[in-house]
Structures are given as C-alpha cells and as structure tokens.
Design a protein around this nucleic acid. Sequence first.
RNA 1: GGAGAGGUGGCUGAGCUGGUCGAAAGCGCUCGACUCGAAAUCGAGUGUACCGCUAAAAGCGAUACCGUGGGUUCGAAUCCCACCCUCUCCGCCA
Length: 420
Amino acid sequence: MIDIELFRKDPLIFKTEIEKRGLKIDISTGIELDKKRRDLTSKIDRLRAEKNVASKIIPALKGEEKDEKINQMRKINEALDRIEAELLEVENKFLEHFSMYPNLSHETTPVGKDESGNVVQSYYGSKPEFNFEPKNHITLGADLNIIDEKRAAKISGSRFVFLKNEAVLLEFALVQYVLNLLIKKGFMPMIPPVLVKEMAMYGTGFFPVERTQYYKTELDDLYLIGTSEVPLCSYHSDEFLDVSLLPLKYTAFSTCFRREAGSYGKDLGGLFRVHQFDKIEMFIFAHPENSWEEYEKLRETLEEIMQGLGFHYQIVNMCTGDIGNPNAKKYDLEAWLPGQNKYRELASCSHDTDFQARRLNIKYRDGKKKGFIHTMNSTACAIGRTLIAILENFQDKEGNIRIPEVLIPFMGGVEIISQK
RNA sequence: GGAGAGGUGGCUGAGCUGGUCGAAAGCGCUCGACUCGAAAUCGAGUGUACCGCUAAAAGCGAUACCGUGGGUUCGAAUCCCACCCUCUCCGCCA
C-alpha cells in the first residue's frame, strides 16, 4: 500500500512512478475517491457525535420529552444508514483502486519499460571453458538418472519433476551448506506454513496483481505460497517491533508453488520453470534509517552463497518496468549456464521499503517515535535452479558431475556424480 | 469429527441483571520526589487508527475499536446469530 497522506499532498509523485513502470492507473480517480471518502467519513462522524450527545441525556429525560428525543435519534439513524452504505461503496472502490498502485522506486533503480532496460551492475568469475560441447541439465539429469520428468508428467502433468538419487543428496547438502552459513550471519532459521490465508497474499503484495499465479485450495480458502517471503513477512503482521531488536533476520526453507499461468511453452522441460520447487529464502525487517545498507549486505550474503558454490554470475539492477509492484529496487543474480549458453536468473533480492509493512501493519517503536518498518527479501538458494547450475557448470566430457567443495561434507561420501 | 470452557489495553485480570465503560485493580513502562547512588516508598503519566484545527511538531477536538462479521436497541464489552481462533477431554492420524 502507498502512503495516502503523501498521495494527497503530492499526487504527481505517483503519476510519475506509474509512468516509469509503464502501468495504466488514472490518479484523478484516486484523488476523487480519497476526497469522497473523507467527506463521507466526516459526515458520519458528525452524526455519530450528535447521537452520542443524545444518548447521554436520554436516561435523564422522562415522558414525552424522552419519546421525542428517541424519535429524533431514529431519524438520524435513517440518514446514517444511507451515508454509511454510500461510504462502504466508496471504500471498496478506494481499496480496489489503490491496491493497484506500485511502490515508489528507488533513485538508483533504472527507468525502463521492460527487461531491455535492466542494467548489469557487476560480474563475478568468468565463463568456464569446455573442450567439448557442454550438455544442458535436462540431458544430464536424465542420463544420470537423477531427474525424472516423464513419470512426473504421468501423475502430475507438465512442469513437475521427480528428483532422484544424487539430486536428492544435493538438495539436502545445499540446505545444510546455506543454513549453516546464514545462521552464522545471525539469520533465524524457520520452516513456515506453505498454505496461507488470502490476507497474507495481499499483504505481501502478490495479490491482487498476480492473483492468477497461485494455487488455491478448494475447500478452505487457503493459498499455496509461491515463496516463503509470504509467511515470513506476515509473521510480524500487526506488531510493533522494538528498535533494539532490528534488523530482524530470518531464513526459511519451504516448498514453493507457482501456476506459471501464461508462460505457455517458455522454458519447458527440466527444472528451470516448474510448478513446485524448494527454496531457502532470506527475509529482513529493518529500520528505515539503515535499510538501504542492510539491503546491500543482503545482496552480499547472496553473492557469498553463490561464490561458495563456484558459479560465474552477473548482478543485474532491474529497471522500473521489470520489477514487481511492491519492489522499490530489485537485483537479479543471473548465473552462467553453459548448457544454454546464457545467463539465467538464479536468485533475486528485493527491497520493498514500507510497502508490505503498510499492508500488514508492521511498525517499529523507537521511544516515542514510531513508523512503518522496511522489509526486504532475497533468495538464498532456489534448489532447482541451483541444481541446473551445478550440473551444467561442473560437467565433464563423459557427463559426470563434480560436486562443489562446500557441499562435499554433506554428500555422504559422494564427490562426483558419475554415469552408471 | 464429538463434548465442554474461553477470547477484554504491553501482561494478569474485573466488568457481561444494556446508558455514569476506551473500560476497575495489579504488574510493567516513562517522568518526577526521596537518596551519595540504588532498592523500597510516594506522586504524575502511560493503547491504536483515522479525520479536523495547524505549514509542521506539540497540543486540542471528533469518530471508531473489548476475537471477526452481522443483528436487536434511541443506546451494546454487556443481549441475539454466524464465523474464526485458543484450551481441556474423546475419536482419528504422520
């Protein structure tokens, strides 16, 4: 949610932001709804005040005088009913309208209409050299008998996989490696619920804009999360956080579910774009005064994880047209995938300033001062995509896979995944 | 799934035969007094949201909020209905 007071004072800020992001929202509708809402509210408040005064005197009145006053109140109630109904309607429109507004982007977020406006900010490492034609992970995974799509399709449809054998060991090794690293950095590990109420989806900013991307259970009005950002952020909803505790750093392991509606034939096959995958996420609640430093530290932590695994990657500063509605700024970490001869998104790291905090009512209290907290989130390790990067980058001519050094302690003696 | 109990401010907990209740009391917290300092004691203060007055802060005023949503009533924390949640017991179950 946006700061409605700021909107009232300077709606042009929002008009500019909407244009930067290539959205189509008419702010004059917003101005009008805001005005109407306030007018109706103050009308209602005045009538209620009158009622409150009357109900203080009524017990002292007697006979006709009392009946007359009561009748008078009945009339006020009729008027109130009418105006309250009107307000309800305006209020609904108001919420519907303003829930479409994006967060205000940071001054360092490049302006652009789509992915072509993204800016590569830095690189780490260099492209690995191969003296043979590197295979993609789909071929490697099938040959090594560690990824089974065919049978997954049989029972669940497309975009599902079975992970098998060493792929399973790799997943748990990644979890161990990443959690250990994050715990040392002061992140509290969590395993959150993956089914959440609508409020959590709305509060984190995924609803209403991306509603069709998520699964809903039929009998219980619960939604399957697309990322543990949702339960982690909602964890502190309706709370005041003591500044002495900030920043609060959490990390969660969870399965994530995405409908991938509208992605049609995109990235079909393999692990890249699936309906269900496991992910370790980082989430931080920070004081607005230092949230931008925390955000850069968060990005560094993500890089540390990926550097440990030995990937070559680039950090991309995403432009206004390509970041999510709640994001003020977003970095994507794109790793080099030799099997595709491309950089592909492995992780993303977003700063949402007070956007989610406003919707979920999460504040800090600093003596007498209080305000909305800042939230930021980053992938720590999306298991599926990380497996792709491991398979494609660390393959040899025979199609064997070398396990990254940092994972070996957790692999139960496996140092190489070899063809059987 | 069945039976019962309950959801009140930061916490504990009164009120629940409708009006004087935004709500007692205790604890906690803040400020002050006492003290060399502290404890103890005493005094004062201490919810949130939204709107208005104001350029803003402070302050003042209005309204709303006693799990959520409806209803009855001139008037509801208090009565009625539905839902949600928590606890205890039973059943089922990884």
